[in-house]
Amino acid sequence: MTQRTVELSILRYRPEEDDKPWFQTYQVPCDEDWVVLDAINYVKDHLDGSLSYRWSCHMAVCGSCSMMINGDPALSCKTFIRDLPEGPVRIEPLANFPIERDLVVVMDDFMEKLQRVKPYLIRSTEKPLEEGQHLQSPAELKKFKQYTLCINCACCYSACPQYALIPEFIGPAALTLAHRYNQDSRDQGRDEREDVVASNEGIWDCSFAGACSDVCPKHVDPASAVQQMKIASTVDWFMRRLGLGGGKS
């Protein structure tokens, strides 16, 4: 297997020693089929045991190893060294989040926002378990399926210029999750979510830069979800003006 020595330039921040982050470089002998995470693991195992970062599945599904690679948010377990340009690889913690230490960011805000959109099935009347499953056609499933695929890696928050400027913005992943449930044929909770989703911090803070969809490693396309909610919310508004009902906004 052919090897290539790659220079990793990693942003370090150790709160007990450092006042501000700084770059540390490591020379890593990489196999041709390595991803960036493999190179970072090499550093941890062989060069510097003090480097901290999150990771687990190494198959792009747990969402923990997202970081900035050469300036863009990405999963380090799905970014192949061979696909990066020659020269040093710049690795930083996810942008737009406070740095806890090294490549570990503080996720509190993200977690709080996920919870705020009520991301669970809401029914006006629960169907008893004894009555069995809800029926849902493949077409009804497909209507929202794409929006179930978010792995909560937070790459979208890192790319979103609005979240960078307005930290109160609920942001792409959480809004997409609201849309996922709104679009589910089994759900009846859209009105309840609308209070959060269509608030000042919700969909109307989105300027449709589309960066979230550009960087999403699972092709969830959060930008589309947010625009669809804007349209639905606008339609509601006009319907109410015309006295034709429509959900609240």
């Binding site: 709160p15 501000k20 982050p21 942008a95 406070p98 503080v106 210029p161 400027l165």
Partner: peptide, 16 residues
């Protein structure tokens, strides 16, 4: 408390 999360400030005029 040894935590000291570091916030990377961005410039509101030149960030883009």
């Amino acid at each position: 408390m040894s935590r000291k999360p570091y916030v990377r400030e961005i410039s509101h005029t030149t960030w883009y």
